[in-house]
Amino acid sequence: MEFLRPATWDEALAAKAEYPTALPIAGGTDVMVELNFDVHRPSAILDLNRVTELTEWTNDGSVVRLGASVPYARIISELSGPLPGLALAAHTVGSPQIRNRGGVGGNLGAASPAGDSHPALLAAGRDVHVEAASVRGTRLIPIDEFYVGVKRNCLEADELIRAVHVPVADGPQQFSKIGTRNAMVIAVCAFGFALHPKNGTVGTGIGSAAPTPRRAVEAEEYLQGVLAERGLWESGELLGTEVVQRFGELVKAAASPIDDVRGTADYRRHALAVMARRTLTWCWNDYGKQIRSAA
């Protein structure tokens, strides 16, 4: 097994071009588990830990460019203001040790439907992009198009994830995750929700309840319609039980879960509806308060 340790981003891209089957590793919180369990036996490992720019983030006021290796612990401590949904998701990742090592780049690279950041990224708006690069150049992949199958993403063999671009939150965001214990648990299912008052949209993200992380598009459209038609963005008035219920049902309908050792498909659908209702209610209550205090 080759062990490649590029010192710079350009060297990393060159190495990936030369060894397209090389498995990138940063925090190692996913890769090392798979190696230990003998699930993968990659021909080469590409260690990105010397490429320090991957652990940096910038915020231009409208978009956060989050380096692929920024650990979850720093997302929680440094970015819970601009990226509240992602920070809540980061709180639920593994243990303190895992949160010190793992980052969003690895979550995206593994593309597991159970990855905790995906629902938060999907909900964070239409303008979330994965910055993928190769010696051929750089492309920004819309997050919706990034996940293509169970543990598969749309990266080319010579591409590496450099960063993810996430719009700064312009409204409340929430994230909920079901696990069968109260910490250190892989999601049975998860749900991310965000209000985007600037463009009158809402965002959703479903985790662990379909072959890939996915949005609940009909639920988003339904809610956007209600909010627009009833002038609720302006009034901040209560949504009413019927709207909340309907939203939950549409989120549930958007999932296509399976039965596995972590939970049943029926339970996942049920829990998604509950989490959708609750996260919507929390976000909308916060939004309503903001509107009223601004008035």
């Binding site: 639920t92 909920s176 995750k177 079901i178 696990g179 648990v185």
Partner: peptide
């Protein structure tokens, strides 16, 4: 229940 998985705010 759920703790930092943030599933309930008392509901």
């Amino acid at each position: 229940p759920g703790a930092l998985s943030n599933t309930s705010h008392g509901e």
